[in-house]
Simulated scan of single mutants.
Amino acid sequence: MKTANYIWIGILMLTLQTTYAQKAQLPQTGNGETILIKDPVTNCSYRYYYYPNLFGYYDAQKNEYILKIDNQWQRLKEIPNGYMGYSLNNKFNVLITDYDDEDVTQFIKVHKKKYPYNFHQKLKQVSSNE
């Protein structure tokens, strides 16, 4: 009986965690703009997040995902259903601390190599300063 209770508690916690993780937002000003914090070393704003499991980015300033669809980079408000098997359970991202201009996609090859994603094992936590 204890085991069944633990399983139900675990499922409930996982459900709540994924629900709140999806709704988490960055701080915003009164007019709806996202407040971006600057890296003291590079003097770049913390604007982009790289998603190794999507081979794409999230732009925190514009609240858009940048994904490659049909060989074209596109900016989307939401990740399309079923995009590369994406799910909330593999929502790992890396904060890009050394770039805050408009075209982060030019560094996709560097980010793929620096932050590889192994689809068969959990991704090891890495820091963008390594």
Rank of each mutant, 00 (worst) to 15 (best):
D101C: 05
T3K: 09
A4V: 15
P80K: 11
Y48F: 11
M1D: 08
Y117K: 02
K68H: 05
Y48H: 04
P52Q: 07
G82Y: 08
E33V: 02
Y6W: 06
L16E: 00
D70E: 13
Y99W: 07
I79M: 04
Y83N: 08
I79C: 00
I37R: 15
Q22E: 14
N129I: 02
V104H: 03
G56A: 10
H111V: 03
Y117F: 15
A24E: 14
N63S: 14
F92I: 14
N81A: 06
Y46I: 00
I11P: 00
N93K: 11
A24T: 14
W8P: 02
T19F: 00
A24D: 12
E102H: 07
G32M: 13
M84K: 13
L88F: 03
Q125L: 11
P80E: 07
T34R: 11
T29H: 09
T42H: 09
Q17L: 14
G56Y: 01
K91T: 08
P80H: 08
N89Y: 11
P27M: 11
F92K: 10
Q72S: 15
F92H: 08
Q25E: 11
N81M: 07
G32Y: 15
V94D: 04
N93T: 00
P116W: 15
A4I: 15
Y51C: 06
I9L: 11
K122T: 05
V41I: 13
Q74N: 08
D70H: 10
L88C: 03
K112H: 12
L54T: 01
Y50N: 09
K124C: 01
Y6E: 14
T97N: 05
D59K: 10
E33C: 05
S127Y: 15
F55A: 12
T18F: 01
A24K: 14
Q28N: 04
K113G: 00
Q74A: 06
Q17C: 12
F107I: 05
H111F: 11
N43R: 07
E64D: 12
Y51W: 05
Q17W: 06
M13N: 11
E33Q: 11
D100A: 09
T97P: 04
K38D: 04
G85L: 05
M1F: 01
N129A: 00
Y83C: 03
Q25G: 06
K124T: 06
L16K: 02
N63K: 15
A60M: 11
D98C: 02
D39P: 14
I96V: 13
K38N: 10
T97M: 03
K2T: 10
I11Q: 02
R47Q: 10
Y117I: 05
T29N: 14
I11C: 05
D59S: 12
Q22W: 06
K114H: 08
G85C: 08
E33F: 08
N43I: 02
